[in-house]
Structures are given as structure tokens and as C-alpha cells.
Design a binder for these strands. Structure first.
Length: 883
RNA sequence: GGGCGCGUAGCUCAGCGGGAGAGCACUGCCUUCACACGGCAGGGGUCGCUGGUUCAAUCCCAGCCGCGCCCACCA
């Protein structure tokens, strides 16, 4: 126990305590015999740095983990980082660009080596920042999605899914990102509306008997048109279905076909079909009997025009960028007199979420996961409650996506990531195996093999996080104990990317859900409600907030603002307010120290006789109960507000003020000792309850309030909500005292009674019990209300009158009192009371209410009415006495 | 086109069947021996609008008006 400095400086204690916890192994004490509690941390990008969203996400997790650790559980918070294929490769490529180099200047091996170097160099940044936030993760088993064990798991998953028929290679349209030159999944495409045009072309019939009009938003793709479709029921075209049209520019002959896809209402009702460059047309093309292998492709990986298989594209167009080609094609068609009309039109255009380049539907061979099959288990699990989504409103969104899920393209044409374990033999076959030796064994010695050059989607590997981090595919002790995990906390923005994939892969490979609760939180927005983004320049750096206000304040802010289902708007004033809260607690502890109050020796509430002590014990227990409920419901805001109010309003503003007379006014020794003991116990409970939210300041105070070197707060015991220790009589008595003090203060303030003036207080019509109470609390009343009990009949002079329960107290103050002000005050009070009494009276005189309302409600209304009516009478009498 | 959410004090948000709360901001007083990053007292709300259900609605239902997000192939 050592004296607390006068000023609280978060920075001075944070680093010290974090190191102490980590070095002492306190994040993961030996508790093999206890019930496990497990959370896996959404692995941040290895080369990333902590942003405000991480701060929210990780604060919430740390609160749960610290709470569970205090409850005595074997709490494990798995931590690690993600290799983040595209994002990381982009970072390194950008660095090369700065040196006038590019990826392709190097061999694949050389480039990957450079990424590893970068990872070694910068990969520690974010983990260091998580430490600054106070996150109590199990660093002793820190993982990386490309570490050896994880890579083994990824390979096994791919091979097993392939052998189960759930991964296959297919030629179909993918979302091709011409900027990054890789395929991406549906989820990585962001659609946005842009202003474009709708061009109407006239396609002449081969037999010269006329023409058919088609409209398109992408004229350049007509270079690879393979048909024109009309609706089967569209009679306008019935007699030309089956004829050919001769396409402008290429001169290709393509048939007029029928397909349900053609909308007779739209444009002319006839639509050009380009199976190689449009998702709808691909389906139409397949229905029309075109094999994907024969579908014409007119764009290369850069989305520049290339020659189609039939060689019909004029040379002048070859090599032209798709947008230049668009212009040129329109010009050529116009020159041929076949451009009928150009309409302005808003077009939904797909962009790559990383590159921000317009995505091109492109015909390639890729690896696909049969997501539909894998989705069945998770759908069922959410339906039957095995997995509870919190807040529940996300369930619909989850079902809607899972029930309409498309094949998941998992191959990426990148260099950084998990190499796909597939080898192509010169025998034309594909061999999928754990390594090349096995593939060779499958193929036989005579076949020469080349490994697939692609890597896997990052989410393919991070989907294994809940079990691969625990040692899978080895059957480790950890895996047995900690899978399924207890709860997953994630932003709703990765519900499909990550959460759903974890469920699919977890259920397939572990046979069980990855966790039983899925808690989804919102986004942290800028103060004006805008989404934070680097490009807008409106991001708030959590490290800066920690520098200014301390990690505890930032954490408390996150918790207090986290109500389920709503985004959080950044409000720095509020962070400041929670810094003030930490300071308040610090000063309360200083007061305790100065008054001989220290660490409690017991976990149970001490025995106490003084009402004020019995009262605060009851208040503490109520707080524990409320906190337990809030935790059970994952109401972070509720929990934070409960402890906040208890510390500030109850403990500091009332309890500490009420015990000052006991501690400082020559009370009996046993009363002082009892009060010190109770205050020490309450402060200890506060520190424990607040610790999950504010780990640093609480641990510091815990150590400073007593010598308990082998019993750090981080592994202390969560308080017991022992209802037996609650004393209703004491609660009533202190409640009465608080109301008397408040009323007196309020009246004094309104009448401008000088703050220091002591007012004599006559019991007036008080009964003996009340008088005795006033006498008993004379020191408290003297200090906090500046009143002194006077026996006898009040003098016949103007006085301040207080109506409390069944008593009218009289405080004569002839010299100071402003009679009119007092009249006004009493009148206002009377009016308010009468208004309430009247409203209750109206309700009670309604027979419908008395008959139909719940008996408790009627009973309460009657009691309230009686009370208000009596109070009104007293106020009226008081007014009359003033004349 | 479907789905979700929001609209409560000047601001940021809780509450969600029995008559409205917090933090900040604001006003007045207080340099009281834990704390001015403080104390005490106070002002401020037809709970978006319109109907309905109910003895009773900010809270449930329907419609409308504003705002936001997600999903979806209208060429």
C-alpha cells in the first residue's frame, strides 16, 4: 500500500500494468480444471494498424474475457493476424512502385520473400496497439493464417472438400478485377449507380428482309455477341425467330432465339446475347446450347479488346481499352447508319472493393466451393437456436443470404497466399493432394506435374480460425476444450465474409457449430454520422484518443455506447467524460486512503450495524445483480451505465459524504472501524466490477489500496450477489435521509439562503420516531443540509417549510427568508403535487380501470394517490401558515 | 424490386404498455480539509405525422413523411 499521487495520469500506469500482466502469464492462468470460456479474435490484417473499429470490437471482447476470468473460468482469448492476400500484396506492390519497380520484375519466390520481409517488419504494429488498448489475449499462442500449422490445416481442408465433391474446378463467368488481375468473389463486388447510356442498335437480318433493334448499356461487347433473344411469347418477332442477323463490324452471323430472359416491355423487347461477358447472357447462352468452352471472349486480363476465336474483330480494335472500344464501336455503328437512339440512363455498375476498378464478367477456369451444400448446416443451426444471433434482427439477413448462396469462387490470381494444392499432369488430369509427392504418387511416375499457380481467397483460410488456431487437424487438448468457442464478436460488415464461412467450415469439419452466440455490432461513425474512411480524411485514430484520455476512457466509451443494433457516432466529449470518471474514482480512492480505508479482507459483505453501511452494502449488491443481468444479455451499455451510476451517484456523492461525519467527528471507535471496513469492501467490489471496462486504473488502485502482491485484480473474484445481505429497513432510512437532505438543499437554493448559513429545523408535527431519526443523523444533516434540530414549538414567524412523508419540518429564518419566494416555491410544489393527485384520481374514478387493469397497477395508483393527496394537504397548510 | 434499421431535451443516445431518463452543452450558487477532469441546485421534451387496438401508448398494429444501410441479373 503506497500513497496515491494527487493527479491521475493514465499514461503513467498503462504500459507498466500491461507488461506486468503479460509477463506474469496472467491473461491465461493455469485453470485446467475450470469451465472453459473461449473467444477468437477476428484476426486483423497483419500489416494493418489499429483503427477505431478494431478498438470497439476488441474492447467488447476484452470486457467479456476479463469478466469471465474474474468469474473463475478458464478464459481463453485466441489472437493472431491474417495474411490478407490482396490487401497485403497491394501494400507491397505500392512500395515497389515507389522505387520504380513492379511485381513482375521479380520471380514469384522473390516477391513472396519480400512480402514476408514486410510482414516481419510491420506485422507487430497492430499487436502492439492491441496491447495498448489493454486486450488480455493469449499471446503465448499467437497465430498467423500462413504459419506452418495453419497452412497445413488449409491444405487439408481444400483436399478434403475436393474429395467430398464440395470443391470443383469450373469454367464460367467470374467477377474479374482488371486492376488487380484476379478473380474475386461476389461479396468483394460493390455495386454503385452511375450515369450512363442506353444505346439502341439496328441489327440487319441476314436475308435482307429487315432488321431487329436491340439496346445495350455495353455496346463494346457486341463484338462478342452470339445471339439475339426475344421472349417466346412475343408475337412481334414470331416470324423471324430462327433467322440470323449479320452483326455490324464483325459481320458475324448469329441466330435470333427465344428466351424468358428477354423482357418484352424493355426497349424493343429484343436483347443481344453476349455469353462471355454478361452473367445473364451466360445463362441464356447455356440454355441455347452454347458450351462455356465455345463462348466467345473478346477481352484480355486487362479488359482490353482481344481477338475472338472466330477472328472476326477488325485489327483496329484489337488492344483497345474497353472504354475506348465502347466509343469506337458506337462510332462505327453510327457511321454504318445503324445507331437508332442514345438514351441517358442510370446504370448499376460493379466495382472491386479493393481496387475500385469496374469489374468485368470474364470467362475463366476457377475453383469453386459448393457453398449451397455447406450452408445447410448453418441455416439449420440458426433456425433451431444452436447458434443465437444477437441482435436477433440480423437473422433474416443471414437466412436471406444463406438460402440464396452462390458457388464461392476461392481461387485468386495472386502470389501472396495459400497456394492451391492442385497439380496438372501432362496427361490432362488434375491431382489434388496435400503435397507434390502425394500428387505424384496419385499420378504415377510417368506423368509430369505443374502446380496450380493460384492462391486461395483469404476468407477461405480465416474461416478455419475457430478450430485451426486450436491445433486442428491435430486432436489437441485445446481443441477438445475450446471448440465450440463460447461467443463470436464481429462487425456486421463481415457477417457473410467471415462469420458465415466459419459456420460452414466449422460445421463441416468439426461437426459442430463454431460458437453458440454470434454478437454483431455496428460501425463507429464520424461525429457527423458519416462513415469513416481514409479517403474522406475523417478517421479518428484510437491511439490518439488513448494518448489524450487513456485507454480506460476509450474503452468505457465504447462499452457505454454499444447498444445492440446501432452504429456508434464518435463523440470525443464523451470520451473525455469517461476520463473524468476515472479521475473521480481515483480521487475517491485517495479519500479512502486518507481515512484509513484499505483493501477488504473478505469477499463477503462485512457485518455492519450502522444504517449507512447496511444501506451501501445493499446498494452494492443491487449493482452486482444488475451488472450480472446486463452481462447475461450482452448489454454493454447497460453494464457500463450501471457501474458508472453506482460509483458516481451512490458511492461518491452519497456514501462518502455520509460517512465523513462518522470518520471525522469523534465517533465511537467501533463505528469508525466498521465504516472503514465496509467502505474498503465496497471500493474493492467497485474495482472488480469496473475492471473489465477500465482494467488499468482499477488494477493500479487495487494494488495501491492494499498489499496483495499475489492477488492481482485481473485474476480476482467477481463479487457475489448475496441478497441475504440486503437490509430493507436501512435502505428505507437512508433513502429518507437522502430525500430530506435533497429537499432542504433544493429549498435553500431556491430561496437563496446563503450556503454556509445553519438553519434551525423544528420537527413540527413529527412523530417520535422521526424526531429520533433526525437526532441520530444530526451530523450528516448539519454537514450536508446545514440544518440543526431544534426541540419545541417553532416561533411564530415566517419559515421555510418542508413536507416529507408524514412530516412538515419548519425552518424559521426571519432575517433571511423572502416570504414571497417561499410562497412561490410552495405554490409550485403544491401545483405539481395536486396535478399528480388529480391525474391519479381521474384514473381511479374510471370504473374500467379499476375493473380491467392489473390489480398491482390499481393498488399502486391508490397508494400513490393517498400519498400525493396527503402531501398536497400539508403543502396547503404550510402555505396558509405563511398568510 | 425485396429486406433491415433509425426519427425521444440544443447535441449524442438509453427506455419500449401505467404517464419520460443519462452524458455533454446551458443557467445560478460554491476557491467546504478526495476530486473545479469538482460540488450543490436548476431550466429544457405535443417521445416524426395520421389513424387503430387497449381501462391506459413514446412503447403494440396499420399507413404516411424524412434519413441511413444491406441484398437483387432488368439488357
Amino acid at each position: 500500500m503506497s500513497e496515491l499521487p494527487k493527479h491521475f495520469d493514465p499514461a503513467a500506469i498503462e504500459a507498466r500494468w500491461y507488461a506486468h500482466w503479460e509477463e506474469g502469464g496472467l491473461f491465461r492462468p493455469e485453470r485446467d480444471d475450470r469451465e472453459p470460456f473461449t473467444i477468437v479474435n477476428p484476426p486483423p490484417n497483419v500489416t494493418g494498424s489499429l483503427h477505431i473499429g478494431h478498438a470497439l470490437d476488441n474492447t467488447l471482447q476484452d470486457i467479456l474475457v476479463r469478466h469471465q476470468r474474474l468469474l473463475g473460468k478458464d478464459a481463453l482469448w485466441v489472437v493472431g493476424t491474417d495474411h490478407a492476400g490482396i490487401a497485403t500484396q497491394m501494400v507491397v506492390e505500392r512500395q515497389l512502385n515507389e522505387k520504380q519497380q513492379k511485381r513482375t520484375d521479380f520471380s514469384r519466390e522473390e516477391f513472396v520473400e519480400k512480402v514476408w520481409e514486410w510482414k516481419e517488419e510491420s506485422g507487430g504494429e497492430i499487436t502492439g496497439q492491441l496491447r495498448r488498448l489493454g486486450c488480455s489475449m493469449d499471446w503465448s499462442n499467437e497465430r498467423f493464417t500462413m504459419d506452418e500449422g495453419f497452412t497445413k490445416a488449409v491444405t487439408k481442408v481444400f483436399v478434403d472438400l475436393y474429395n467430398d465433391g464440395l470443391i470443383y474446378r469450373d469454367k464460367r463467368l467470374v467477377n474479374w478485377d482488371p486492376g488487380l488481375k484476379t478473380a474475386i468473389s461476389d461479396l468483394e463486388v460493390e455495386n454503385s449507380e452511375i450515369n450512363g447510356h442506353f444505346w439502341h442498335f439496328s441489327y440487319p437480318l441476314e436475308d435482307g428482309s429487315g432488321a431487329i433493334s436491340v439496346a445495350t448499356t455495353r455496346p463494346e461487347t457486341m463484338l462478342a455477341d452470339m445471339a439475339v433473344a426475344v421472349h417466346p411469347s412475343d408475337e412481334r418477332y414470331a416470324d423471324i425467330v430462327g433467322k440470323n442477323v449479320r452483326l455490324p463490324i464483325t459481320g458475324r452471323l448469329v441466330p435470333i432465339i427465344t428466351d424468358e430472359h428477354a423482357d418484352p416491355e424493355l426497349g424493343s423487347g429484343a436483347v443481344k446475347i453476349t455469353p462471355g461477358h454478361d452473367f445473364n447472357d451466360f445463362d441464356v447462352g447455356k440454355r441455347a446450347g452454347f458450351k462455356p468452352a465455345n463462348m466467345l471472349n473478346m477481352l484480355d486480363a486487362n479488359a482490353a479488346v482481344c481477338q475472338t476465336a472466330d477472328g472476326l474483330i477488325p485489327d483496329e480494335l484489337i488492344g483497345m481499352d474497353r472504354f475506348d472500344a465502347r466509343k469506337t464501336v458506337v462510332e462505327l455503328i453510327d457511321a454504318a447508319g445503324l445507331l437508332e437512339q442514345v438514351e441517358d440512363r442510370v446504370i448499376v455498375t460493379p466495382y472491386g472493393d479493393r481496387s475500385n476498378v469496374v469489374i468485368e464478367p470474364w470467362l475463366t477456369d476457377q475453383w469453386y466451393v459448393d457453398a449451397e451444400t455447406l450452408a445447410q448446416g448453418p441455416i439449420q443451426a440458426v433456425r433451431d437456436g444452436t447458434v443465437e444471433i444477437v441482435p436477433k434482427s440480423w437473422e433474416k439477413t443471414f437466412f436471406n443470404w444463406m438460402e440464396n448462396i452462390q458457388p464461392w469462387c476461392v481461387s485468386r490470381q495472386l502470389w501472396w497466399g495459400h497456394r492451391i494444392p492442385a497439380w496438372y499432369g501432362d496427361d490432362g488430369k488434375v491431382y489434388v493432394a496435400a503435397d507434390e509427392a502425394e500428387a505424384q504418387a496419385q499420378a504415377g511416375e510417368d506423368v509430369s506435374l505443374i502446380q496450380d499457380g493460384d492462391v486461395l481467397d483469404t476468407w477461405f483460410s480465416s474461416g478455419l480460425w475457430p478450430f485451426a488456431t486450436l491445433g486442428w487437424p491435430e486432436e489437441t487438448e485445446d481443441l477438445k476444450r475450446h471448440y465450440p468457442n463460447s461467443v463470436l464478436i464481429s462487425g456486421f460488415d463481415i457477417l457473410f465474409f467471415w462469420d458465415a464461412r466459419m459456420m460452414m467450415q466449422g460445421m463441416h469439419f468439426m461437426g459442430e457449430v463454431p460458437w453458440h452466440t454470434l454478437y454483431l455490432h455496428g460501425l463507429v461513425r464520424a461525429a457527423d454520422g458519416q462513415k469513416m474512411s481514409k479517403s474522406k480524411g475523417n478517421t479518428v485514430d484510437p491511439l490518439g484518443l488513448i494518448d489524450r484520455y487513456g485507454a480506460d476512457a476509450l474503452r468505457f466509451f465504447m462499452a457505454a455506447m454499444e447498444s445492440q443494433g446501432r452504429d456508434i457516432k464518435m463523440d470525443e466529449k464523451r470520451v473525455e467524460g469517461y476520463r473524468n470518471f476515472a479521475t473521480k474514482l481515483w480521487n475517491a480512492a485517495r479519500f479512502c486512503q486518507a481515512n484509513g480505508i484499505g483493501a477488504s479482507e473478505t469477499l463477503e459483505a462485512p457485518d455492519a450495524t450502522l444504517p449507512v453501511n447496511r444501506w451501501i452494502i445493499a446498494e452494492t449488491i443491487q449493482t452486482i445483480q444488475q451488472l450480472d443481468l446486463a452481462f447475461a444479455d450482452l448489454r454493454f451499455d447497460g453494464a457500463a451505465n450501471t457501474i458508472y451510476r453506482f460509483v458516481w451517484d451512490r458511492f461518491c456523492d452519497w456514501y462518502l459524504e455520509l460517512i465523513k461525519p462518522v470518520l471525522q467527528q469523534n465517533s465511537a471507535l467501533e463505528e469508525i472501524e466498521e465504516t472503514q471496513m465496509v467502505a474498503g469492501w465496497v471500493l474493492d467490489q467497485i474495482l472488480v466490477m469496473l475492471h473489465p471496462f477500465m482494467p488499468f486504473v482499477t488494477e493500479e488502485l487495487w494494488s495501491k489500496m492494499g498489499d496483495r502482491p499475489d492477488y492481482p485484480l485481473i485474476t480476482a473474484k467477481w463479487p457475489l450477489a448475496d441478497a441475504q445481505a440486503m437490509d430493507e429497513d436501512a435502505a428505507k432510512e437512508i433513502d429518507w435521509l437522502i430525500r430530506l437532505i435533497s429537499q432542504t438543499r433544493s429549498a435553500r437554493s431556491e430561496l437563496n439562503v446563503p450556503p454556509a448559513a445553519i438553519m434551525g429545523m423544528y420537527g413540527g408535527d413529527a412523530d417520535d420516531e422521526t424526531l429520533e431519526r433526525v437526532q441520530r443523523f444530526r451530523f450528516e444533516l448539519s454537514r450536508m443540509a446545514r440544518t440543526e434540530l431544534v426541540r419545541g414549538t417553532p416561533p411564530n414567524e415566517p419559515a421555510l417549510q418542508l413536507v416529507l412523508d408524514g412530516t412538515t419540518f419548519v425552518l424559521p429564518l426571519a432575517k433571511v427568508i423572502d416570504l414571497d419566494a417561499e410562497k412561490a416555491r410552495l405554490t409550485k410544489s403544491l401545483e405539481a403535487t395536486e396535478k399528480e393527485a388529480l391525474s391519479l384520481d381521474k384514473r381511479l374514478s374510471n370504473p374500467q380501470f379499476v375493473e380491467k387493469a392489473k390489480p398491482e397497477a390499481v393498488e399502486k395508483a391508490r397508494a400513490d394517490h393517498a400519498e400525493k393527496a396527503a402531501e398536497a394537504e400539508r403543502l396547503k397548510a404550510a402555505l396558509e401558515r405563511l398568510g
